[in-house]
Simulated scan of single mutants.
Amino acid sequence: MGAPLVFIDGDQGTTGLQIHERLQGRKDLRLLTLPEQERKDPARRAQAINACDIALLCLPDGPAREAAASIVNPAVRVIDASSAHRTDPQWIYGFPEMSTEQSRRIASARRVSNPGCYPTGAIALLLPLVKAGLLPADHPLAIHAVSGYSGGGRARVDAHEGAGASHAATFQVYGLGLAHKHVPEIQEHAGLAQRPFFLPAYGSFRQGIVLTIPLLLRQLPAGVTADQLQACLQQHYEGAVHVEVMAQKDVQATQHLDPQALNGSNQLRLAVFANPQHGQVLLAAVFDNLGKGASGAAVQNLDLMLQHAA
């Protein structure tokens, strides 16, 4: 039996190109991509997706749903990088580190939904604290994040790197209707009982994210301290290859957070900053929106699924 055949549907988009690059040279799989003239042919795409072992959907939500619906071969397994199926109970959520069982679920799944970039940071910070009872599920939460402009897809990349790049905004806050499509995903997978407030922004750098969540200790259960929050995250991610929690001595020595610090990697760095005098805490996550926030996570999930197939 030959190496598994992996089909990337949408390999010319930002995420698809990055996945293709990460898989180049691999001997344990075969890559199937369609020539340019066939990429928009529904019949040819349906044929390709039904001929592969694992399909990676790097498409907008609508086309991703159509691609998934076109599968008639029961042996085909799918990783969807769009947001189309992230709250669908029939799909396994592709964040391996969210629990001790999640890697196993992903490995054996037929359908995996890759997490969104912003939700990756928010869920990583919030879920362990909610599960441990240190953060009430109904706590009012405000999440702020700044991403590189590649998070806006090809149109925003072109705006910053194309002919009119000199006129591109250096910083833009968006999602002002407070209805960003990532909010339901964050609420569900972080175990929150109510909708968090989420305000995203784009900076004039290509990739990388800093996501922050402020907390007031007086609003948390009695006796909860910043040290307990940090210890909870440390314990939850102990042994995790791709998630690191900053030690307190490193947090205390940190004066700035660089959204580009982990670019090109599949790492996610978490930290708990605190001002004990005022009872204030800041949860923070730094990662590459094209790495752990997209293509790196997809390849991590692919590897889990390939290991199970082997």
Rank of each mutant, 00 (worst) to 15 (best):
F205W: 11
G291H: 05
A163S: 07
P214Q: 09
Q300R: 11
H182S: 11
D288F: 04
F171V: 10
V183I: 15
L199H: 09
M246N: 08
F273S: 13
L215M: 02
G175F: 06
V173C: 07
V243I: 12
A247K: 03
A240L: 14
A284W: 06
G208D: 08
A226T: 09
H242P: 00
H180G: 14
L304Y: 14
V245W: 01
V251F: 03
V251I: 06
I209G: 02
Q219D: 14
L268P: 02
G203N: 09
Q219A: 11
P200A: 05
A222F: 12
Q219I: 01
D288I: 02
P200L: 05
L262D: 09
Q248W: 04
H167Q: 11
F198M: 02
Q194D: 09
M305T: 14
V241W: 10
L178A: 13
H278A: 02
P221W: 10
G191D: 08
P221L: 09
F198C: 02
S204H: 10
V272T: 04
A226M: 07
F197P: 01
L262G: 09
A190V: 13
A253G: 13
G223S: 10
Q187L: 10
N289V: 11
Q267C: 04
D227P: 00
N275A: 02
Q300W: 11
A222W: 10
T225Y: 04
V251C: 08
S204P: 02
L262T: 08
F197R: 06
I213E: 08
H180E: 14
L178P: 02
I209Q: 03
I186Q: 15
L216Y: 05
L211I: 15
L306W: 06
A169N: 12
G208L: 05
N289Q: 14
I213W: 09
T212Y: 11
